[in-house]
Nucleic acid binder design. Structure first.
Lengths: 112, 112
DNA sequence: TCATTATTAAACTAGTTGGTTAATTAATCA
DNA sequence: TGATTAATTAACCAACTAGTTTAATAATGA
């Protein structure tokens, strides 16, 4: 199970496009801070702070190799997000099913 | 498809426990602002502001009935979150599969 | 009309966020 | 050792967030 505070940290980490872009990059494998910073206009300290936020949320783990501090993705908090959203899935699937019945002209509704 | 800004708004709306609790309540059906505020210690204006944030993210839609402004859940942004997290699913499923092979003593790995 | 109920607006505050530049730490390399 | 490279820390700032209290709006009901 995942606590409220863990979800707070995860959602707020995911709320920034730069941080989401960093995660997309890390999905392809580990990278150093400089490598991660390269595609962005922001300064290195700014990226460093974003990485910290991701780390605090448990989305990124860090190693230590020579003068590099390689970052790696940890998907556990994303699994937690996925199972949180799953609690609403029945609602949008119900909506989808209703749409589907409508489009197919089959009324599987109570009054038939 | 969903833009970056839409995801920003959605994730940051979901980053607050009070707002997530409001959504849980709304999953059971529409409610007025006062009904939504009832379980919390916060003042009514505070809850009103939270609802606005949810509304701005498209997670809540509002009606107008007499002096009530009933809130209803809209799951579209949650679907967007679910499909965003899905792009990482292969990673955690790979991890799960590896764990599974390990526990079952079957080495389906390259060197065999 | 007047009082009540539901909700929002206004004004303010403390704390956080996201960014900057300049300085510092720490490891490698010549 | 000294220079270079990688990354963080410090100090600062503007904008935003989450909350408050008090006041206003708007519809209902006596």
């Amino acid at each position: 199970m995942i606590g409220d505070e863990q979800l707070d940290a995860t959602f707020s980490a995911l709320a920034h496009p730069t941080r989401r872009a960093i995660l997309v990059r890390l999905a392809q494998g580990s990278a150093t801070v400089n490598e991660l910073a390269e595609p962005f206009d922001a300064t290195l300290p700014a990226i460093s702070k974003h990485i910290r936020v991701l780390e605090a949320a448990g989305l990124v783990t860090r190693g230590k190799e020579a003068q590099f501090r390689p970052c790696a993705l940890d998907t556990k908090p994303l699994e937690a997000v996925a199972s949180w959203t799953d609690q609403y899935r029945f609602i949008w699937e119900a909506r989808f099913d209703a749409m589907d019945r409508l489009l197919n002209g089959m009324k599987g509704t109570p009054n038939e």
